[in-house]
Design a protein around this nucleic acid. Structure first.
Lengths: 149, 149
DNA sequence: TTATTAAAAGATAAAAAGGTCTTTTAATAA
DNA sequence: TTATTAAAAGACCTTTTTATCTTTTAATAA
């Protein structure tokens, strides 16, 4: 469904939402260790997220990555769009060229409602709102101890 | 969501359901041209589907691939399981190790209901039933003219 | 203004997915 | 029983994704 890059991007953006602000920047190394993601890979990913204005950064001493208030108004779908693009969501589940309500693939009416509701949910809530929910409910964001497959 | 291999497998199995039977076998070449999928790749895929008892085959003149009545009792999820495995469905959407109702990832309650309903639908209907529906409703199964991306 | 810090940029490498080709095996029609 | 047909098997190639490493740029603290 999502590439690893997108998953890392969502997790680390939520991590930044919870632990960083304009006066408290966090280095790649700290984040990568916190959520247990390879740091050079995360560094590359962050460059793209900065270009996409999902997260912010400054160089030099006390530099690092952080979220501005504007960044916090983005939603999860913006992150996915920035990394994977939205084709995975918009394209036919079976890969057919012509697939819509008028000319549906065999699973069209099974998959379509699901896709729409998932898409809606990911647009629904801002990173800020997500982050509040996470700290309220004490949810875990790390991949530590994970056997990725 | 699905690998290309799985998509090809579903399409070509449904094609066999509609156009083949024990007395009418179809060669890889004919199928690959009909649904516009690379034939050497489909040949490999078919070997695996035969081993998984999703489809059947015989060698030699008038040989080819076909579905038995038993094959037709399989469902779409059996195909996906045989090619991709079920990890994509069972694993956490964000890739977290520990993610369940008690210790959910940030999107757990968004994704979980969707996954379950999709899974149910794919188990619900046999290949036979799917095939009947397709020929009734005249749905298209080809990838022709498709810009895969 | 210089040394230090941390991100940006770019080149490179490893793994996985997707795709192709050649040889072998089995079925059958002549 | 032999030639032919079509799948099975296995080696190989290409592209994409994931991951790493090195050099450059920018910010700032001393």
């Amino acid at each position: 469904m999502l590439s690893r890059a997108s998953k890392y991007a969502i997790l680390s953006t939520l991590f930044l939402a919870e632990h960083s602000n304009v006066d408290k920047k966090i280095s790649v190394k700290v984040i990568s260790e916190s959520i247990d993601v390879p740091s050079p890979f995360l560094a590359k990913l962050f460059q793209q997220l900065v270009r996409g204005k999902i997260i912010s950064s400054t160089k030099g001493p006390n530099g690092g990555f952080f979220l501005t208030d504007k960044n916090r108004q983005k939603n999860v779908l913006d992150i996915i769009e920035n990394i994977d693009g939205l084709n995975k969501f918009n394209d036919c589940f079976l890969g057919l060229n012509e697939c819509d309500g008028k000319n549906p693939c065999p699973v069209h009416f099974i998959v379509e409602p699901f896709k729409n509701s998932l898409l809606g949910k990911f647009k629904d809530k801002t990173i800020h709102e997500f982050s509040l929910e996470i700290s309220e409910k004490g949810r875990v964001l790390t991949l530590k101890g994970l056997d990725l497959s």
